[in-house]
């Protein structure tokens, strides 16, 4: 399907046998492996999208101090809320 990424998880037969011998819950391990693979794939997608976003942004823009801007935005909103009438 277009736009979908396939991630393959392989469990080696030797590992499977060893896991059984050690009493490891295969289903639980698989769930964790799948969750980890999904997390990695989403993170990879995020990085790729960020790189595309950077290309769109003007290189010579002066952004200012990010932390100070965040503090000011949060403070401004709180001030606006405190003066808002119900």
């Amino acid at each position: 399907m277009a736009g979908m990424r396939r991630t393959t998880i392989t469990v080696e037969a030797d590992n499977l046998a060893a896991a059984r011998e050690l009493g490891i819950n295969i289903a639980e391990v698989s769930r964790k492996a799948i969750a980890g693979a999904v997390r990695e794939a989403r993170h990879r997608r995020a990085v790729e999208r960020a790189h595309r976003l950077w290309v769109e942004l003007p290189a010579d823009r002066e952004w200012g101090d990010t932390a100070r801007k965040v503090d000011k935005l949060v403070a401004d909103e709180m001030a606006a809320d405190s003066t808002a009438r119900p």
């Binding site: 997390r39 989403r42 993170h43 997608r45 995020a46 999208r49 960020a50 976003l53 769109e56 942004l57």
Partner: peptide
């Protein structure tokens, strides 16, 4: 606020938040 400040378009700001959501 970035679109209101003229720093980003609405689409760019939305993309940024989607990236945050995917970042893990």
């Amino acid at each position: 606020h970035a679109p209101h400040n003229g720093e980003l378009t609405v689409e760019q700001a939305t993309a940024a938040m989607e990236i945050v959501a995917d970042f893990g």
